[in-house]
């Protein structure tokens, strides 16, 4: 798993010239955050029944996610899911949601 971080940087490194050339590299946080959409809505805009994550401050999200991972925050499912992501991935996810506007989708 130690390989992941250098790989991401390598990948981001390859993106820069491509963006310059008109390619469409997709933000790593955006693709990671998309794995949450099944329950929390596209880009964190929940349509109901779950917490909307769009626009929630990064540090608030990271605190909650860390508490889920450590089993300190009661949950039916999030304690199992949060453990599947590295701290670096959770940071990218939290940054993506924090950067979203808070409107409620379409």
């Amino acid at each position: 798993m130690k390989l992941i971080r250098p790989l991401i940087f390598l990948w981001l490194g390859t993106m820069a010239p491509a963006i310059h050339a008109g390619g469409m590299a997709i933000d790593a946080g955006r693709t990671l955050a998309a794995t949450c959409a099944n329950c929390h809505g596209t880009d964190g805009h929940s349509v109901g029944g779950t917490e909307s994550l769009a626009g929630v401050p990064r540090d608030t999200l990271l605190r909650k996610l860390a508490a889920f991972s450590r089993g300190e925050k009661p949950a039916t499912i999030m304690h199992q899911i949060a453990k599947g992501y590295t701290p670096e991935q959770l940071t990218l996810i939290a940054e993506h949601f924090a950067a979203q506007r808070t409107h409620t989708g379409h």
Partner: peptide, 16 residues
Amino acid sequence: LHLLADLPPNPSPVVM
């Protein structure tokens, strides 16, 4: 989208 732009795919995708 990456391949269309001649970029390599994300090397570390995650699904759940």
